Amino acid sequence: MQADNIFTNQSKTVMLIDDQTLYREALASLIIKHHHLNVIAQVGFNEQAFEMADNLKPDIILADPCFNHEDSIPFIYRLAQRCEESHILLISSPCSSDFYFDFIRAGVSGIILKTETSDILLKAIDRVLSNEVWFDRTLLTSAFKEIGKRNQIADLQKNSLTCLSKREREIVNLVVNGLNTLSIAKALHISEKTVRNHIYSVYGKLEVKDRLELALFATRNGISAEPVL
């Protein structure tokens, strides 16, 4: 997806991440009216977003994981890890509390629901830019309940990770960071068949059925924080 750039001389820089061009443009128009905000980039949920964030280092990133919250979790984890100098504010439609927990754990500075007004959104942006956090009280309550549930199974999950070999953990790390089978094979100097065998072995050990479930399991348990080879 082609990125759109808008440059002005305002003081605080904003990057928008959303797969809907019309929505991004409408949000940009709203933000530009806020006198101290400067929308410097608009892009979809793709690899270009990471490259632009690395290069532009915006003060705040507004991301809208609206289509499938579960698919967006690994993306948000990677974004937060790569953009430590930028605040991340999610604009989210209502979803399951466990997704809120994952977004909070990823390190976002705030989550604002789409049921709020534009004035509340601008207020949230200002708060986050002032190094505060912005989370709806009901949202936080739901997330804390999820923390309690997750803590009960955390030890079991950690024990599952210990059963992976060093090579399997390397492959999981690369899967989480978006590499396909061919790219993993090249990075590790092994055959694609060997990569597939390792991946199927990991599926069995962690009791996941596909790469998405593997990425979610891994990001929830810290594997995504390891450096990419």
Results as ranks from 00 to 15, higher is better:
Glu192Tyr: 14
Val202Trp: 08
Glu192Asp: 15
Glu168Gln: 15
Phe103Cys: 01
Asp210Ser: 09
Lys145Glu: 08
Ile91Ser: 02
Leu37Arg: 03
Leu216Ser: 03
Ala41Tyr: 01
Tyr77Phe: 12
Gln10Met: 00
Ile88Asn: 05
Pro94Ala: 01
Asp155Thr: 14
Ser224Val: 06
Glu47Phe: 07
Leu37Val: 03
Thr162Met: 15
Gly110Glu: 07
Pro227Cys: 01
Ala143Ile: 02
Lys12Thr: 02
Lys193Ile: 14
Glu85Gln: 11
Phe144Leu: 15
Gly44Pro: 01
Val128Asn: 01
Asp71Trp: 05
Ser96Trp: 02
Lys166His: 12
Glu207Ile: 11
Met1Asp: 07
His189Thr: 13
Val43His: 04
Val195Glu: 11
Leu90Ala: 02
Glu132Ala: 08
Ile184Thr: 12
Gly148His: 09
Ser142Asp: 12
Gln20Cys: 06
Leu188Ala: 10
Ala215Met: 12
Phe99Cys: 10
Asp59Met: 00
Ala143Cys: 07
Thr8Met: 00
Gly148Val: 06
Asp102Met: 06
Ala28Gly: 02
Gln48Tyr: 04
Thr181Lys: 14
Phe144Asp: 08
Thr162Leu: 15
Ile111Arg: 04
Ala53Tyr: 02
Glu207Trp: 06
Asp210Gln: 08
Asp59Thr: 00
Glu170Thr: 09
Lys12Phe: 06
Thr117Met: 01
Ala80Ile: 00
Val128Trp: 03
Asn5Gln: 08
Ala185Tyr: 13
Ile190Trp: 11
Arg196Leu: 13
Asn159Ile: 12
Ser201Arg: 15
Glu51Val: 12
His87Thr: 06
Gln48His: 08
Phe144Gln: 12
Leu129His: 08
Asn159Pro: 07
Leu27Cys: 06
Asp64Ala: 10
His35Trp: 07
Tyr200Pro: 01
Thr194Ser: 14
Leu156Ala: 15
Ile223Tyr: 05
Asn197Ile: 13
Phe75His: 01
Leu174Lys: 06
Glu170Asp: 14
Ala53Ile: 05
Ile60Cys: 06
Phe135Lys: 06
Asp155Leu: 14
Glu170Lys: 12
Tyr77Val: 05
Leu37Tyr: 09
Glu207Ser: 15
Arg137Lys: 11
Phe99Asp: 04
Cys95Arg: 10
Phe217Ile: 03
Ser97Val: 01
